[in-house]
Design a protein around this nucleic acid. Sequence first.
DNA 1: ATCGTGACGGTTGAG
DNA 2: CTCTCAACCGTCACG
Length: 310
Amino acid sequence: RPLPNAIRLRIVELAQLGIRPCDISRQLRVSHGCVSKILARYNETGSILPGAIGGSKPRVTTPTVVKHIRTYKQRDPGIFAWEIRDRLLADGVCDKYNVPSVSSISRILRNKIGNLSQQSHYDSYKQHQPPPQPALPYNHIYSYPSPIAAAGGKGPTAPGVPAIPSAMAMPRTWPSSHSVTDILGIRSITDQGKTLICPHRTPEGSRAPPVPGAGTFRRLVSKQEAAPNGLPAVSSFVSAPTMAPYPTPAQVSPYMTYSATPSGYVAGHGWQHAGGTPLTPHNCDIPASLAFKGMQTAREGSHSVTASAL
DNA sequence: ATCGTGACGGTTGAG
DNA sequence: CTCTCAACCGTCACG
């Protein structure tokens, strides 16, 4: 699992103080290869954050595709999945790179258009209406508003090109209604100071939402703030209190300090969903300017709170 | 002794 | 529900 951000931060911090990587690795008990990697990444992208683990290419079953599948099914209820696939290609809805697999189409037919035959009359009557939307927008997890992201290119992100576009910097969200705080009954702690932990995953899942990507931090770390040794100043996006070196046992969450003074990197940025709506996933009434902070806190907070609770 | 880098095994989530 | 795939991670070993 990725090192906690506090340690990643510490690595960069110590490097900026001129401490040799070998000493850093010894001091923090992290392999020198890891230190080297984190520093190299930081030099290249300006971000200390790990990349998003897991996942896969953007979903091909976009609302448009689903809509077309629905239409095909309405017109010909006996149509086969492979025929739908062919038609998606023929009609130019998809190309050969993003056409859903037959099994995906079958799943769509089963799960989303399963009772179409019963309601086909009704649907055809109100075909101009948008399909019923779930509580969360379909495909809300992956939305690629930017051509760069839409291209979904593989391979390393070129320097200067955000790994995740600003809108994508909105972490993937999980539709779970469970939160660490709910489960552990420590909401009062996390509510203090508007340090919110959004419900994303249960502790046993321990999978916090990804955090804004490198591009996010690149945007936040200006070149003028580069440290003498060439590294961008850590303090430009993590304020002094955050540098409080090491988590002390007394702290509820050592990483909570991330939210201590957010002005450096959250001010003025209203993190927005791709749709342009303010970022308030799962009814976490986080002001836009606090959204990122909240996410960050959620990631680290849930991690450490869970750990401390065990 | 130090450090960059590739191989490796593990984890994760979408399809 | 399970499997596959592709992304990432940190560690290790090599040069």
